[in-house]
Design a protein around this nucleic acid. Sequence first.
RNA 1: UGGGGUGUAGGUCAAGGGUAGACCGGCGGACUUUGGCUCCGCAUGCUGGUGGUUCGAAUCCACCCGCCCCAGCCA
Length: 569
Amino acid sequence: MTNATDPDKPAEGAGESLDFIRTIVTDDVKAGKNAGRVQTRFPPEPNGYLHIGHAKSICLNFGIAKQFGGKCNLRFDDTNPTKEDVEYVDSIKEDIRWLGFDWDDREFYASDYFEQLYEWAEHLIKTGKAYVDSLEADKMREYRGTLTEPGKPSPDRDRPPQESLDLFRRMRAGEFPDGALVLRAKVDLASPNFNMRDPILYRIRRAHHHRTGDKWLIYPMYDWAHGQSDAIEGITHSICTLEFENHRPLYDWFLDNIPAPCHPQQIEFARLNLTYTMMSKRKLLRLVQDGYVSSWDDPRMPTLSGLRRRGYTAAAIREFADRIGVAKRDSIVDVALLEHCVRDDLNASAPRVMAVLRPLKVVLENYPEGQVEHFELPAHPDNPEMNMRKIPFSRVLYIEHDDFMEDPPKKFFRLAPGREVRLRGGYFIKCNSVVKDPVTGEILELRCSYDPATRGGVAPDGRKVKVTIHWVSADHAIEAEVRLYDRLFSDPDPGADREGVDWTSLINPNSLEVLKGCKLEHTAAGAEPESRWQFERIGYFCADRRDSKPGALVFNRTVSLKEDNWRKG
RNA sequence: UGGGGUGUAGGUCAAGGGUAGACCGGCGGACUUUGGCUCCGCAUGCUGGUGGUUCGAAUCCACCCGCCCCAGCCA
């Protein structure tokens, strides 16, 4: 008996476990709800840049739509002109496209619906379910009651519909100053859910809106705009984060009290938290404004533009979103999983190149001066389709400073006085002596000898070396700047509010180290901005899409290679 | 103190009445011209607690406890 012939099995994802949202959608489709149609939406407010947490939502919404043969709209929730800006809508669109999703022509704005929203508001007034209130903000807070006491009615609560209607129209016409009046729904002042204690639908705000300009003087609140926008677009499943769970009764109440074209179902899931970073838009904004980072797309930022600039691939982020799952409990995902996803992707695709970040000069005493030979190495160890690279070799080389130790500990297998190692793709070399600065004791260069019989890296006599190190020919190397990025925070959960701790004190002071004069294999000379490479034995690097230029290359470390912990033992 | 949620390996997430799995991480080993990759193996869980129903409970019921969200004219 196979699933394929069993009508009771879900059409999608059969055999695999579904997250709770896909389970709901599957059941709805099976039950013929919405005529089997699935329509989702991703509804960002254009008041900041998208971050990895948004990526989870984007992948979920676009992913579900695709999986069930539906569509996902992009809708900007632009109901608060004082905080929103076109700069953000542009960046949001760019980031979603980069992530690999397409909304075709379904680019919507809550502000597109202001007129319809206004009409429905009048409908609520006419049916006695909304009223214009003149209570000041402070008073209104007082009247709203507390967790244990019910709210009490505003003196305006029983204003006749006709009077409210008149006032509301005059609010729109601009007859009152900002904040003088609001439109409130008449729901239930005694509800233990504050959202139901006569929520505000409209406030007066003389603010220039990035799309509607100065047309409107009154703007709808989130609660009044969101569900109605969903209904207008025919959304079937309105997926949002947990903090809106308390809003669901209101979401439903509005839809039940207007002639809505349909009634979407709101479903809430837990937003993403990641270790060693934070998602708070407010705090992210402060990192930028106070100069802790250079910009929204600083490679240390958890923004999509930051991750992109750091060298993360869209595929890696999508894979990550798949792996973290979807649930309702608050959690914090280990950033190591994200790093695993990029390594996995980049390991398969990034061409290899040798790069010496902290050069240590090596002179091969027995190699003829002026001689140059070339070795061939594959650009990728297990992808023969990628070309071979020809690497020049000569008497003076650079190796990584870390690959030499004068007095090595037990588990250090690299170069040391009297010790032999293999130069990747080249010869075995042995360290004969160390040249030091007589004053400082600093190691200036290594005098070594090579074994001509080991060309290509194998010894005819069968002797082995413990390790292979990377190198670059001094005369043939190109130079580059390399930016070593590390986690922005030194605390695993910097977003958690702890009393007495200012979150900015948790910023990792060593989150960026800039290395100049790094020596790279010439193969990397043509590195295009945003091209990704593996610097062998070091990590994955991406040519900075803003600062890297031909002849003045700048690479960002995306993530290091996983390292055997020889230092620990 | 009111309401709404949520508690399963170190971390995320599965199992939905038949005695707990995957991935990441950790540890160990094999392989290796990247201390990478790959491959093998190991470990940790009284499934928040206590009672109850049942032949049998992580799954059902009751009570309790922890954590998160809610008193913006923010979203």
